[in-house]
Structure formats: structure tokens, C-alpha cells
């Protein structure tokens, strides 16, 4: 019970901090959401390659994997894993393989939802 509580609390704090960094970037640099997302996913790849992000995942769990930096982490981790298994080819197969579920879900559910619902103006 205690373990579960700690894991959720550390996910909350880790994820919160990562999002707060994003907010600072938006307010201070006028980066658009598209640029923030690109920056975060790329940073995730780089930090994973440098061995830093794994430690963050060990501490924060979903707090580190749910933000888009975590998407970069999965991409890089998958690439490394496949490189170990298949050599250079792995650099091209590993990333997408590891994130295939998320990407496919986004495309499929995205399509369903956009066909089923209509946009409404904020009033």
C-alpha cells in the first residue's frame, strides 16, 4: 500500500516538474505548442542517450514516461535495444517498434474521434 502511494506521489512530482518546465518555456520564449512538443521529444531522446533519463524513469515512473520526453525515451531505448540485437538495422527499426502502440493508438482513436465529434467554439 505504502509503495503504491510513493510511486504515485513521485509520478505526480516528476511529471509536474517536467510540465512546469514546458510552461516556463511557453511564457518566457513564446514557443508555440508544436515547437514545445518537438523540443520535448527530442530532448527525451538526447537525455536517454546520455543515460540521464533512465534514472528519471526509475524515480518517477509514469511521471517520466507519460510526458512527451518519455516518448523520446521509448524511441531511444527501443533503438538501442534493437541495435544490440540486430546491429545497425536496429537503429532504424527499434524506435518505432517500441512506440508502435502509442502511435497507432493516436492515429486510430484520433481518426475515430475526429469523425464522430464536431469542434465547438469556446464561449
Amino acid at each position: 500500500m505504502n509503495n503504491i502511494f510513493v510511486s504515485i506521489l513521485s509520478a505526480f512530482i516528476t511529471g509536474g516538474i517536467i510540465c512546469a518546465i514546458g510552461q516556463i518555456l511557453i511564457d518566457r520564449t513564446k514557443l508555440t505548442p508544436a515547437r514545445i512538443l518537438v523540443l520535448f521529444v527530442t530532448s527525451g531522446v538526447v537525455l536517454t542517450a546520455l543515460g540521464i533519463y533512465q534514472r528519471l524513469v526509475d524515480i518517477g515512473g509514469a511521471g517520466a514516461t507519460v510526458p512527451l520526453t518519455g516518448f523520446g525515451y521509448s524511441l531511444a531505448k527501443g533503438a538501442f535495444k534493437d541495435v544490440e540485437q540486430y546491429g545497425l538495422l536496429g537503429a532504424f527499426t527499434g524506435g518505432v517498434k517500441a512506440t508502435a502502440g502509442g502511435i497507432t493508438a493516436a492515429v486510430f482513436f484520433g481518426y475515430l474521434v475526429s469523425v464522430a465529434f464536431k469542434p465547438k467554439p469556446k464561449s
Binding site: I26, K30, T32, P33, P119, K120, P121, K122
Partner: peptide, 20 residues
């Protein structure tokens, strides 16, 4: 038209972005 202008010049209506 608010929605037509947003669509052309800015972001989709349902995108969760903040207006400066």
C-alpha cells in the same frame, strides 16, 4: 468569423493551448 479566422490564422479550436 471567430472560428473561420482561428482555423486559417492560428490553431484548431479544440487544441488545448493558452492565448497570450
Amino acid at each position: 468569423h471567430f472560428c473561420a479566422a482561428e482555423k486559417q490564422f492560428r490553431f484548431p479550436l479544440e487544441l488545448g493551448s493558452q492565448r497570450p
